[in-house]
Amino acid sequence: MVGIGGLGNTLNQYGSIAKRAQKNEKNQDTKETSKTPEKKINDSESKLSAKAQEYLKKLREKYKDYDFIIANKDDDKDGLASASDKEYSVMISSDEIEKMANDEEYSNKILGQMESAIDSSKKLSDEFGYIKQMTIDILGDGNIRFLAELVSGKTIEAESEDDMRSQLNEIDWEKFAAEVGNSGTKIDYSV
């Protein structure tokens, strides 16, 4: 009978541990759901004409893998780029998207630059790794700015693919990997 009583005590202890764990999970769920939503970063998309909004909609349908962000000089471009949930983003000013919506030849020129810059970004991401997100900022004067957000949260800004490559080459990647804890990209099977 003592053995059975001991088993009962063990089960009671297990039951109270399980109840505490469930209570902690409920408290954690409550904490997570009661968090205030993050403040939305304002962009300039709402300022577009109906024609430009329709054009932007078509771009998003055609290039589903990219996030198109409408941002002007006064907008928080870095914040908007970081808020994107896609690996590649294209940032365009409202003036540029308006001009693209109204001039097919200009639009084709800008889209060609964009596609070339995205291809360059993909090469850089494949070559260097540890790049969480790449943003192409179409500056409107025929120039493009590259923004790379690394998995560590550090952002690198460059005026060309060569400039970005040069800056990425300056990083001590072994030290970087140690700092970010390899971020789950490699599995060490050694014992």
Score class of each variant (00 low, 15 high):
I4F: 10
G6Y: 09
L7T: 12
L7A: 11
N9R: 08
Q13C: 10
Q13R: 13
Q13T: 12
Y14C: 11
G15T: 14
S16M: 13
R20D: 14
K23N: 08
N24V: 08
E25F: 10
K26H: 11
D29F: 13
D29K: 15
T33D: 14
K35T: 11
P37L: 06
K39E: 07
K39Y: 06
I41A: 01
S46Y: 05
S49W: 00
Q53E: 07
E54T: 07
Y55F: 05
Y55M: 01
L56M: 03
D67C: 06
F68N: 00
I69T: 03
I70R: 05
A71D: 06
D74I: 04
D75W: 07
D75R: 08
D76K: 01
D78W: 04
D78H: 07
G79W: 04
L80T: 07
A81E: 05
A81L: 11
S82A: 14
A83W: 03
A83T: 06
A83C: 04
S84C: 05
D85E: 14
K86V: 09
E87N: 06
E87F: 00
Y88S: 01
V90N: 00
I92E: 04
S94Q: 04
D95T: 09
E96S: 06
I97A: 05
I97R: 04
M100D: 03
N102H: 09
D103P: 06
E104A: 15
N108S: 09
K109Q: 15
K109T: 15
I110E: 13
G112V: 06
S116R: 15
I118C: 02
S121L: 10
S121Q: 08
S121P: 07
K123C: 09
K123P: 08
L124E: 06
S125L: 11
S125A: 14
E127G: 10
G129R: 08
G129D: 12
G129T: 12
I131A: 02
M134T: 13
M134R: 01
T135W: 01
I136P: 06
I136L: 08
I136V: 13
G140Q: 03
G140C: 01
D141R: 03
D141F: 07
N143M: 05
I144D: 01
A148E: 00
A148W: 00
L150C: 05
L150A: 02
V151R: 04
S152P: 00
S152Q: 02
T155W: 00
I156P: 00
I156M: 04
E157S: 13
A158I: 03
E159I: 12
Q167P: 04
Q167L: 08
E170V: 09
I171M: 01
I171K: 02
D172P: 02
W173E: 09
E174K: 12
E174V: 15
E174S: 14
A177N: 14
A177P: 05
E179I: 10
V180P: 08
S183C: 05
S183G: 01
T185V: 14
K186T: 11
I187L: 12
D188G: 11
D188S: 10
Y189V: 14
Y189Q: 02
